[in-house]
């Protein structure tokens, strides 16, 4: 069975981009699960690790770009937390799973497609 993927969207940006995706005839495999947070800045390192612990082999956090965040630095915060979680996984030698952050402008379907292609 394909590796399980969890994607955290930001309600204010990447959620919209996913909504748009359907108009571009993109389809997702059923190993990919989407959920959203009011701001990706609300994600904690522990939430990321818990997702891995519960069986997700890929956890993606899709926030906004640096300068257009609804909560000013929410995306940057998310990115830093992802970096910390990645560091912890490396420290404990956990290589079965990966965690990544991507920042994209709301509505940037092309970048989203590229990200989804890497899964």
């Amino acid at each position: 069975m394909a590796a399980k993927v969890l994607i955290y969207q930001c309600s204010y940006c990447s959620y919209l981009t996913f909504d748009l995706l359907s108009q571009y005839k993109v389809s997702l495999q059923d190993n990919i699960f989407l959920t959203d947070l009011p701001c990706t800045g609300t994600i904690s390192v522990n939430m990321l690790l818990e997702a891995v612990e519960n069986g997700f082999e890929k956890v993606l956090v899709l926030g906004g770009t640096g300068n257009d965040c609804r909560f000013l630095k929410g995306s940057q915060r998310a990115q830093k937390r992802v970096e910390e979680a990645v560091k912890i996984l490396r420290e404990i030698g956990y290589d079965k799973a990966s965690i990544a952050f991507y920042g994209l402008k709301p509505g940037d379907v092309d970048s989203l497609k590229n990200i989804l292609n890497t899964i």
């Binding site: 009011p38 609300t42 904690s44 909560f71 929410g74 915060r77």
Partner: peptide, 10 residues
């Protein structure tokens, strides 16, 4: 409060 939750996670 705008409900972003950054404080809660931090």
């Amino acid at each position: 409060c705008q409900g972003c939750g950054i404080c809660a996670s931090e």
